[in-house]
Design a protein around this nucleic acid. Structure first.
Lengths: 324, 324, 324
DNA sequence: ATAGGTTTTGTCAAGCTTTTGTACAT
DNA sequence: ATGTACAAAAGCTTGACAAAACCTAT
């Protein structure tokens, strides 16, 4: 059904096609849009309207109601009321869903996990991709990330540590997972949302999977993310913060040296912005496995520790920014 | 079915025959090709167009859609969306196509390019994404990569060099483009194909856009790619080669030190595999802008230089592996 | 169906009758024959064309296709494509055809020739291949071999002699042509036929293009060929002859020493088989450019000189074995 | 609903090359 | 019958334009 939906939203119609399909004059439904914001078609770069199948269905419905004697304003009100009962993207918050599904999901997921790990060891991107797609069709994105993609990467990492597979396998798996996460991230970028949140790894730090995962989850929770990727010099981060003024900055480190650098950066940032002249000070959130292994490193950082995994981090950020 | 297909694709029609069969004036579908790259007929040595049965079916479909009120641009868009799910090889080879479309597509592309660059400077991933999606729906993937994504990155790079934007913008743009390329790469991984080809940047080298682009194009040409991403130690590459035995290894470098390291690695690899006992020696293909700026560096490398851009590289590799 | 075909090809019409039956002006289908070798009518002793029912059907078909908007070149191309799957013997014998087509075909061929030579100099096998395929779709195999592949090789040879290209270009071109000829040879191996004929170059002789060409033509004339390739020791040839007992052995030499060796071998073979106990003695046919340059060398050989080129050789062999 | 703007798209023209039917001279 | 020649036909590219479609605002 996901695929079907994808296709249907890809089918876009120009004004003329909508007129042929609905029998409603263009001026009419353009007036509806102007006065009531319904339908709400997308636009091309040339500013032409692009109607989806759903928009056409909406116009059909409005036309039928007016024919049945309803005024357009009443029809729109009824449409909105019906829509509130059966909202289109029924996105429960991920946290709620995880609690419910988790027990069952792990069982169901293990089959996919085996397949993905085996496919990765065989360098078979197509097979791994097929397994992931299948999992995505059955389970929410968050579950697939937390209980399939990340465990697969951990499993490969462990096997590498035990000398069972080479680092190439780890690279391949990592590149694969990053590509997948990137694709999911692209899909879930909200039009506008809370935030924005700036996310990056500082200069020298290359391990971006955890950060990308957190960003994906935040994006799914409706946050707008400004993802700057790995290896960013501190100076440039400062400039960006000054321009964008995000309420939160996310930093991630995976090795002790990177953690130390992150800690120094956090203090520099705070010092930099905490002047009488500057009313703006960004909150700093940080994470990374190194801070789980060496909790004492957290003491050096001037910011909020986001927890042991991306899921926890996203929940923590949600809280922090809801409070603010 | 293979034989049938062979026959059908061998049936080629000149422009006049297509006019008789579809009822669409030649000027019209030539304009479609000029503006949207669809259909994409092959050519004779005398530069006359040769349409396949598939091309004729395409024109028929487009004609029917326009009769149903769709504008030609939206018809093309829907055709491409359906085609992405169940792609068929174009009549013309990619190299031929690129030459043809460039002129017309560039004009059409410039609007997208402006929008993407502006969106990037505003750190507006959603807006940039929308523009890229629109371009992808209207124009072939190859064109979008070469004439939109890469130029956008160059433009941002130039503005950074001129001090007009910060390095964060460059990072943001780079992360965005890599995510997009990764997504396209995922879409076009063929079930089985020629190859496999192993692609990586060696330890220390982080600039993977060019390599990823080349891999995407190769993937679209039907090659199976084993993408190991940036920062891979040589030892691990050797182990992988020994296990996978790809006919070709792709290496990329962007800085002089990385180029020197690549050169040393190429010689090591050759020395490693060129023993009387080893019947297998992988071909090494390499590229990266540093080899264009400093051609003398090529002399140090024991491998095939793949040219100045991803398109050239993909064509070159196609040749090399066809000859083998 | 075999009987039917036999009868149909026996019915012969002169040019005027064909005009009456097809409604196509004589000039027109003679131009088709001149430019594309289709149809290929037989001839009277006075050199008048004699069209079979099949030729008339061919002309009818071509006329219908052009009425349907196809250009004559594409109609021929489609005819040949269908014919490759289910080939029928042409009315005229290859020798007759070759003489007829030469003049006109050369003009048409020169475009292909330029392209192939240029592609070879660029080491672009794919481009060269494309040009050859196109020529094969438009013209009979014999023409393509004699007026495209062989001239291309000569042209490259001359340029090498003039120092315009390196010896690697010559090697590349030679390997390319041998591959192409080999592929055509594979395609045209008849199920069963006259023969078999054993063909080889003796130890030390590596120049196999002429021999391969002759074998291809013989194969197209319905002979079954046992191609042993270059560099065969005499002993092994003897063993093979004893086992296969072919009515004819083909030998080829390109240099004076190879010619001397060939002469000695011919005498040895004759001596070997001409014993009272042996009822079987193979006929020896030989050729190669060295025997054209130094006709006196022919005196040393105990066999039949096959003429100055592959075409002549094939015709000569046809005669010899028809008489036997 | 109309007016006055922009964008999109089918069509055409000019100037060129390639292809192809027909005519002519040998 | 053959080979050459030639002119008409068909194709190609670039650039342009005007009608159609679409947009906003009155």
């Amino acid at each position: 059904m996901g695929l079907f939906d994808r296709l249907r939203t890809d089918a876009l119609y120009n004004t003329g096609a909508v007129v042929q399909r609905t029998g409603v004059p263009a001026d009419t439904f353009r007036a509806w849009e102007r006065r009531y914001g319904l339908p709400a078609p997308a636009r091309t770069l040339g500013n032409q309207r692009l109607y989806s199948d759903r928009d056409i269905a909406t116009i059909d419905w409005l036309r039928d109601q007016t024919r049945a004697g309803l005024s357009i304003s009443q029809a729109v009100r009824q449409f909105r009321a019906a829509d509130a009962v059966d909202p289109l993207p029924p996105t429960a918050t991920p946290a709620e869903r995880d609690n419910v599904v988790e027990g069952g999901a792990d069982t169901r997921m293990s089959g996919f996990l085996d397949e993905v790990v085996r496919a990765m060891i065989d360098y078979d991107a197509a097979r791994a991709s097929r397994a992931v797609e299948e999992a995505l069709a059955l389970l929410p994105i968050e579950d697939v990330c937390l209980h399939l993609l990340q465990p697969a990467l951990y499993e490969i990492g462990h096997r590498w540590a035990r000398g069972e597979v080479g680092i190439s396998t780890e690279h391949f798996a990592s590149a694969f997972v990053i590509r997948k996460l990137g694709a999911l991230f692209n899909l879930s970028q909200p039009e506008q949302g809370r935030g924005p949140i700036v996310a990056t790894c500082l200069e020298g730090e290359m391990h971006e999977v955890g950060l990308l995962l957190t960003c994906l989850f935040l994006s799914r929770r409706g946050f707008s993310i400004l993802y700057l990727g790995p290896n960013l010099p501190l100076d440039d981060l400062v400039k960006t913060l000054r321009r964008v003024r995000p309420p939160l900055v996310l930093l991630s480190a995976s090795t002790p040296p990177a953690a130390v650098q992150l800690a120094a950066a956090s203090r520099d940032l705070k010092a930099h912005f905490s002047t009488p002249l500057s009313p703006y000070v960004p909150v700093i959130g940080y994470g990374g496995y190194v801070f789980v292994q060496h909790p004492d490193l957290r003491d050096e950082v001037d910011g909020i520790f986001l927890g042991r995994d991306a899921d926890e981090a996203a929940a923590r950020i949600d809280e922090v920014l809801a409070a603010a």
